[in-house]
Design a protein around this nucleic acid. Structure first.
Lengths: 351, 351
DNA sequence: TTGAAAGCGATACCAG
DNA sequence: CTGGTATCGCTTTCAA
């Protein structure tokens, strides 16, 4: 009889879960064994712990062993032991982000990495409100940055109870207990409406996208226009519009019947779509109808007439990162409320 | 003498890290204590473990205790114990994503959630190559989806060794050991070049964006044009261009000197920018110069002349989600290589 | 300078 | 049907 040596990883006992998974991902214990030291020493060396001095030869042996095994520390185990992480969680917005928002997110991620945070975008589709908040809380993030509405005071409480030291909302309204970056879309509409009124327009249409998920922005923009002309003789007409050419053509076809002399088109993309349809219908812009968009996209400048727009100023990523950092380090302080989204009209040729 | 009962959370000993963090986030032990049962029972109840039957009154007590404390399970602890997670990690791309890509990501997230995966976008700015791969591996994701280039065979190995059962790249080239969704940007250029050649154009310019991070796409597109006209009498001229009006105006000003009769403008946005500049310079499109973009954005249809474009067909999110799921469940199988990004020319009026 | 060991929170075996 | 307990991988205190 011949026998072959086989590796017996651990003494018999309750079946360990890891034995079911992939063929042994190396742990710090493996590194320790290969280097001929204890796990403690491995930890000291790999984390450069300054409180303790390890001899140079030992350090080298540990580093070599780690490299040879392809050792990568286990983040979950580490933060479990540490009792905290530096993860900043951002629920990914449900609507595909526009270029403005994408840039903002990128900048923010960069700024937070500089402060040694780890930014994670978590896709929570289907879950709503407090349901979603619980899912986020399971990850025990040190801070949560919530774009849009959809998080209630309950949700904030859940997150804080599970260790989040800062909850920041980035949306139209203030939420009890959370820091708020107030994106005042109502002001966007207000600026647009005021501008059109000042240009002598009195019968103002407001495009309301039919796409889902945009009402959180479009409703306050419409309300802002209403407020701008409140108490005057001007009228405001909501105009549902889907983002495709037929829908725009249909709207343009009945335009003269609507008797409007101006339109705030939600944003530049809808504005371009509508402006083209109006022109194809032979309606003069801005002569017969003034058009203004929002977001100040580069492309608006390329049209003829050049598209007037409401320029939006988002907070800089660095500012927001600093707010988060402050909140994390001083969790006791009262929630800050910052109005952001400065809105200024950029008049070009379409209004 | 009078005494007051105080809660003594744990016996004296090594200072526990968690006592430093927030004022006690509730654990399953807290729930057990409040419900008057053991932690095991709590686990059984909250996970609906079918292998074991718990009496109805006990279940209710546990649920009530959990709700009262606002208990949320600790994902890290759970996956540490389980030895695996269902996290699909997607490094967030360094360049702000375009509308096409955003939609694709959203769809993918949705499809993966349906399969009970948790999708996490991880912002790794500043880290490069294997450095980044190690950072991703620390999270022990069950699958990694890497957009763009930048992951080498080494990185794939690191990820697999640390338990990733599927690594899928989504970029221009195949990477050893990983499943690949080959986004063949070279074919995009090839289609565009072929189209322009077929329309009788012989002196073809190709816009190469000056913005960082785009060369991974622009280089193969340029190469594709070159291949399309290889062996003919046509010439190909790279045209560096930044995404702003002055840059476009400068290029347009020296256009006649370049003697080109066609241009493939990288994508629709650059195409619109350039086309406008050419028109402002009095250069006829398509008469004097034909223009074609790529991505088939809605806005290209709104210009006059309507912009010709290369329509890109990304894989459906559902398909990719299924590929991931298959790979996770059958980690042994050979990496699949799927060509995606079907490219078809949509001719409109600008070419 | 190094090692032994406790313990973070959750789960699943096995005994009662 | 329920409770005790070992265990996942890692950090850190204390002792040698």
């Amino acid at each position: 009889m011949r026998y072959v040596m086989v590796q017996i990883p651990k003494p018999p006992g309750p079946v360990s879960p890891s034995s079911l998974s992939s063929p042994s991902v190396p742990t710090s214990a493996d590194v320790a064994r290969l280097a001929g030291v204890s796990r403690a020493t491995v930890s000291y060396v790999l984390n450069n712990t300054s409180a303790v001095r390890i001899s140079e030869p030992t350090r080298r042996r540990v580093h070599e062993a780690a490299k040879e095994l392809g050792y990568v520390p286990h983040a979950a185990a580490r933060s479990l032991r540490a009792g905290h992480s530096r993860m900043v969680l951002m629920p990914a917005p449900a609507v595909p982000a526009g270029p403005l928002y994408s840039r903002f997110i990128n900048e923010l991620q960069w700024a937070l990495s500089r402060l040694d945070y780890t930014v994670v975008q978590y896709g929570t589709l289907g879950l709503h409100g407090d349901e979603a908040a619980r899912a986020w809380a399971e990850l025990r993030p040190v801070a949560v940055l919530v774009p849009g509405s959809g998080l209630g005071p309950q949700g904030v409480a859940v997150l804080k109870r599970s260790g989040a030291r800062a909850v920041v909302t980035l949306g139209p309204e203030y939420v009890e207990g959370a820091h708020a970056l107030l994106m005042d879309h109502e002001a966007v509409g207000h600026r647009a409406g005021g501008h059109l009124y000042d240009r002598g327009r009195r019968r103002i249409g407001v495009v309301v996208p039919e796409e889902d998920g945009l009402d959180a922005f479009s409703a306050p923009r419409l309300a802002g226009v209403r407020r701008a002309v409140h108490g005057t003789d001007a009228t405001v007409t909501p105009l549902p519009l889907a983002y495709d050419e037929e829908s725009a053509a249909r709207l343009a076809a009945r335009w003269r019947g609507l008797g409007l002399d101006a339109v705030f088109a939600y944003n530049d993309e809808y504005a371009m779509l509508l402006m083209r349809a109006l022109q194809d219908e032979g309606i003069g812009v801005p002569g017969e109808t003034a058009v203004i968009g929002a977001d100040d996209l580069m492309l608006g400048r390329l049209l003829r007439p050049r598209l007037s727009t409401v320029h939006l100023e988002l907070p800089s990523g660095r500012e927001l990162a600093e707010l988060v950092d402050r909140a994390v380090r001083e969790p006791g302080t009262a929630p800050e409320r910052h109005p952001v989204l400065g809105a200024t009209v950029v008049q070009r040729d379409s209004s």
